[in-house]
Simulated assay, not measured.
Amino acid sequence: MARQRSGAIICSGLVLLVAGGFCIYARASQSGGSHDRYPVVARFVSANGLKVGADVDMDGVPVGRVTSIALDPASYMANVGFTLDRAVLLPTDTVISIGSPTLTADTALMVEAGQAPDRIAPGTVITNTREPLSLEQQVSNYIFGNGGLPSN
């Protein structure tokens, strides 16, 4: 009887140890290891569909994570805080938009790097942003390329 109890205690302890390890791993993957990232803020007319924890994608590659979404009471614009990998040094004319990389993906911040020689410093507020596209517009862009609009 004592042998069965000790076996149950050992198995229970191992299950708890594995569960604790998974929790630590999940927490670390959600925070993204902020020590190797720097903060940036983007100002949008609307942050519709964007959630805290969403990916920041550049050319289909995740390069950061959304950390906060708040309304600026003075301008009534959405301030979206996010972090970027330290290896990603964005030009000052970078454009940030809200959208989905595919029709089935979650909404993310999409980064389009510019060509300026100067780089964005940590804590910079980016105002060169685009409004999020509606689902109808995304479907139209997918079917017709640019939504049937003449390109410039």
Rank of each mutant, 00 (worst) to 15 (best):
M58G: 01
M58L: 08
D59N: 10
D59L: 14
D59Q: 12
D59G: 06
G60I: 13
G60S: 12
V61K: 02
V61M: 05
V61Q: 04
V61G: 02
V61Y: 02
P62G: 02
P62F: 01
P62E: 04
V63F: 07
V63A: 07
V63E: 03
V63S: 04
G64I: 02
G64Q: 02
G64A: 10
R65V: 14
V66R: 01
V66W: 01
S68M: 06
S68A: 15
S68G: 08
S68V: 03
I69W: 05
I69V: 06
A70P: 04
A70G: 07
L71H: 00
L71Q: 08
D72N: 15
D72L: 07
P73C: 00
A74S: 14
A74G: 08
A74K: 15
S75T: 14
S75P: 06
S75N: 11
S75L: 10
Y76Q: 11
Y76W: 11
Y76D: 11
Y76E: 10
Y76R: 11
M77W: 01
M77S: 05
M77F: 05
M77A: 04
A78Y: 14
A78P: 10
A78V: 13
N79R: 12
N79E: 15
N79W: 06
V80E: 03
V80N: 04
V80R: 02
V80T: 11
V80D: 03
G81Q: 14
G81Y: 09
F82K: 03
F82E: 01
F82L: 10
T83A: 08
T83L: 11
L84P: 00
L84T: 00
L84Q: 03
L84F: 00
D85R: 04
R86I: 05
R86T: 09
R86V: 05
R86N: 15
A87W: 07
A87R: 03
A87M: 05
V88G: 03
V88S: 07
V88R: 03
L89M: 06
L89I: 00
L89A: 08
P91L: 13
P91A: 13
P91K: 12
P91Y: 12
T92M: 09
T92S: 11
T92V: 14
T92Y: 00
T92I: 12
T92G: 00
T92E: 13
T92F: 01
T92L: 11
D93I: 14
D93H: 08
D93E: 14
T94L: 06
T94W: 04
V95K: 08
I96V: 14
I96Y: 07
I96W: 03
S97F: 08
S97W: 07
S97L: 10
S97Q: 10
S97C: 08
I98T: 09
G99N: 11
